[in-house]
Design a protein around this nucleic acid. Sequence first.
DNA 1: CGCGTTTGACCCGCGC
DNA 2: GCGCGGGTCAAACGCG
Length: 393
Amino acid sequence: MGSKEESKKMEIDLSLKLDDKQQSKNYQVDEVEARREIFQPEKFKITEEISILQMQMNHMKEENKLLSKAVEQIMKDYYDLQTRFAIIQQNKDPKKNFFMLKGDDHDRIQGPKESTKMFDHVKNQRVLLSASGEDGEKESDELGLSLTLRTSSKKLEEYNTRKENREGTTGSAPVGDKVQGSKNFPGITSAPNKRARISVRARCEAATMNDGCQWRKYGQKIAKANPCPRAYYRCTVAPGCPVRKQVQRCLEDKSILITTYEGAHNHPLPVGATAMASTVASYMCNEITTLNQTNFPYYTSPHMTFPPFPYVPNLGNYINPNLDPSRGVVLRNNAGGSSSRSLENLGYSSNGNILFNQIFPGHKLVEELLSKGEGNNNISTAIASDPKFRVAE
DNA sequence: CGCGTTTGACCCGCGC
DNA sequence: GCGCGGGTCAAACGCG
């Protein structure tokens, strides 16, 4: 009978289709073969045997899936542990908490004087990382570029209340109160209740830091505490981007520019900004202290940056596991700038090049590009365009 | 003419 | 209720 031959052929095909990875399971195939011989005289049982084989195959497939997941998890844990180990090593060395990106002759500055290509686009800027407390303006003794992420729950509550009040009085809002939902920036209303501020203190002769993004100035004020005018900027890279920044000279040292960023970009960062992003990302990976935030501003849109700091790139699965998105982070220098931080620990080589394999350990794309000898710019571009470097929704 | 900056006016929250 | 200070708006202005 033709149908019987077909069944037999199918049976053989099914055996052949077993994956190579399942060679260890070959004994099962042999067993089936043996059974086939035994039961061959009883042709009517062939169909039953086929179904058994299929069940066995399905079982093996499931087993393969589980094994694949296990391997994946092990690899993930390996990278996590690697990152944690790096952090522990970092904390062991108290000298590594200060570093400078550009040479600076400020007599108060201590630490290695390294130059870097990272900030070649930041002309006339002398940038360095140093200590900063909750209020960077009060800690001007240690000058340079410092980072402070502020998530004042009180402020957030205030802001939420204000926003709720505004939204609750749609149509009857005060005339002039166009803070949110401006006709010029209709997208500003997007998730403004999740706000964090990060202060960047940088030695900069220019009026504002060239950080790779496009900004439009929308106001200027002279604050009471500091006679230096405070300028207000909005990000104009994408329409409706809620990110704003305030720029003000330090009262104690006017060569220091205090830039305070607020909000998260709703667009991928320009390539020029990714260099700065990497700097901050590496800084964050080394200086993390968790906060109690329940209102911590965190966006999960694939176009949002993570964490909400405007310059932090999306690291995807490769982000420091300590950067728990459900919690807040604060960047802190733990020795008041009296000791030094090596460039390597912040993701830079001694010549200032980015150590991408350190910032993104185990990332295939990065490893591939590095093995090809690609330069910083190419890798930055690749990372910026790699959709896997977006935080999954 | 379009775009970015400047600057006075306005709004809002807070403290007294 | 009033004044203060921070933040924002938007018309005026300047520039290429």
